[in-house]
Design a binder for these strands. Structure first.
Lengths: 341, 341
DNA sequence: TTGTATGCGTTATCAC
DNA sequence: GTGATAACGCATACAA
């Protein structure tokens, strides 16, 4: 492998001069610079990051720790956001996965330390509370799509489930709906509480009473092995004579099942019943007919801005607030329209 | 940061001895070893990979190049497979994303070279033909979920779309169906051809005639911005008096829309019409009621075994065949049952 | 504007 | 079994 000395020899200059050219430092005569650049191209010289890192004790590398990837589709977008930011700032990204295993996690922190990682993005694949177990030497860390237990104060960045659900509820109300059904997410998910809470608060503000809303549990049980009540609950809810004109779902997967149940009952969407979801799982939300009105989880932004926060943290700039919430914008599509009555 | 010399001093031995202990080399007296290990723990010493890499010119690092993550849900499982293999073999994984941009890709190869990566997994997010543009110095590379243009012979590993579709078709035939509809994937996808081909071959072998099958285009146009014909085509196909008793779909997303269309027509699944998909996008296949019979894309295995192949390649072992196809197992669930007639 | 000497943390060599 | 010393490729300090 060709080194800086090889280039220096071939160009008839010292290695320091080559170093200057490579790193864009000043005080190099244009002619020398051109010559060196030419030799670099001819020899196919690529700087050795490891050597650079040893000497300068900077690795220009971020680490990503994920818990499990596959539970949520599109959560890979978080990683993509991080990568884009990294690329724009000439950073490299190391990736590791814990599979939710504490021993593995400890091992990963060690590996990251051995690579002298400058910072870590701790990425959860669903929104939740978390307690990372870093090694003895602490590396600057930002939590993405999760937040720390109150005791240990990592900075974090997460979706604003409350705002998303509130805006979605308003969207439904603005379309004239006054009888609204609600299918709850698995209560074990952090988002479940916040979304339901926002729904309750918002319909109350709009003057609806308990009799106007019909809240039912859609899923329950351990994550990844939950009991699914959506289909039956939807059928029950929509079979009665006094059925709601709009149905809000804890997420898009629940919305999908609500579609199937409604259709099976001979109901048309949105003519007979408006339906909205949450998350914007595009394989679902765009495949449904009519396409699903929902609130988008800002996965990409979570990653991108999480990486941005981490950089600020490393550089010692003050990080504005410990927990940062990113908006979940309402994506209005065809499944929620004006209440017919 | 504590270095090997600090440990050596504290333990009253030479740095070489510490090195021996750290790397599990022989010729160290047990007592010495214990002593050194204790000091390492006390001081919290973690070896510096960069320095190790400089000296030994081995990086113990793999690179992953992906094209775009978000188009296909669960494709992150490929990455997870790679990570698991890497972890088991004490390898670190660098991640980079091209966004399908050639310049960016070139940049990534350079970055990987500068890190003296030992091998690259080139991962496509949908099954296709590809031509990577490596740097001047070639790094051992394995293509995952794609294969090279015939001209350049990278080893590759991909799903066996043909086998999957064939077995799925047989599954349908075994349930007595003799009139079968088929909704095609976007022809621009590599899988589209192979799945359709397998379907055709298999029904022909079973003695069905052209009149017994009804093949229609479900999607067309550029990837990511396709025109969606599924809903209408399904309605047309299922509205006629002579409708098929089973409907095979190019993938699960198409199957989802077929469900909606069938249900909208007042048909029951599977009593009136059996439906099967392809891919096993679990957000769809498990959310549908009844759950979807489909063929699973072996994402995780693609990654895991791709990494395995890459290691063999690096170690100079002979890689059995240039293109390796992994089976797509049929996942029988409730959406395809015995033909009622 | 350019070059020399030194050191980063590790492994390799070879001597003891 | 163990240790001194060189060497890896680069950046830093300082000299010229």
């Amino acid at each position: 492998m060709v080194s800086i000395v090889d280039v220096a020899k071939a160009a008839g200059v010292s290695n320091k001069t080559v170093s200057r050219v490579v790193n864009g430092e000043p005080n190099v005569k244009p002619a020398t610079k051109t010559k060196v650049e030419q030799v670099i191209r001819e020899l196919g010289y690529v700087p050795n990051m490891a050597a650079r890192s040893v000497r300068s004790s900077r690795s220009y590398t971020f680490g990503i720790i994920t818990d499990f990837i596959s539970t949520t589709p599109y959560s890979g977008d978080i990683v993509r956001g991080i990568q884009d930011w990294a690329e724009q700032n000439r950073l490299t990204v190391l990736l590791a996965n814990t599979n939710d295993d504490r021993d593995k996690e400890r091992e990963i922190w060690r590996t990251f330390q051995s690579h002298r990682i400058e910072g870590v993005l701790y990425v959860s694949m669903y929104h939740r509370e978390i307690s990372p177990s870093p090694g003895a030497v602490s590396i600057p860390t930002v939590l993405v799509n999760c937040h720390p237990e109150p005791s240990n104060g990592y900075p974090s960045i997460e979706p604003d489930d409350y705002q998303g659900s509130r805006d979605l509820t308003r969207h439904v109300l603005e379309h004239g709906h006054r009888k609204i059904g609600y299918l709850r997410l698995n209560p074990r998910l952090l988002g479940a509480e916040m979304r339901l809470e926002a729904f309750r608060d918002t319909v109350r503000e709009a003057g609806l009473s308990e009799a106007d809303i019909d809240i039912r549990l859609g899923m329950e049980g351990p994550i990844g092995a939950e009991t699914n009540l959506v289909f039956e609950e939807t059928r029950k809810m929509l079979s009665g004579p006094d059925r709601p004109t709009a149905l809000m779902c804890g997420n898009d997967e629940i919305a999908l099942q609500a579609y199937l149940a409604a259709l099976g009952l001979g109901l048309r969407i949105p003519e007979d019943i408006s339906i909205v979801g949450f998350d914007d799982f595009r394989t679902v939300s765009l495949a449904l007919k009519p396409e699903l009105t929902t609130a988008a989880l800002p996965y990409y932004e979570l990653g991108y801005r999480g990486a941005e926060r981490l950089t600020k943290l490393i550089e010692g700039q003050d990080v504005p607030s410990d927990r940062l919430a990113l908006p979940c914008p309402v994506i209005a599509r065809g499944s929620c329209t004006q209440e017919p009555g």
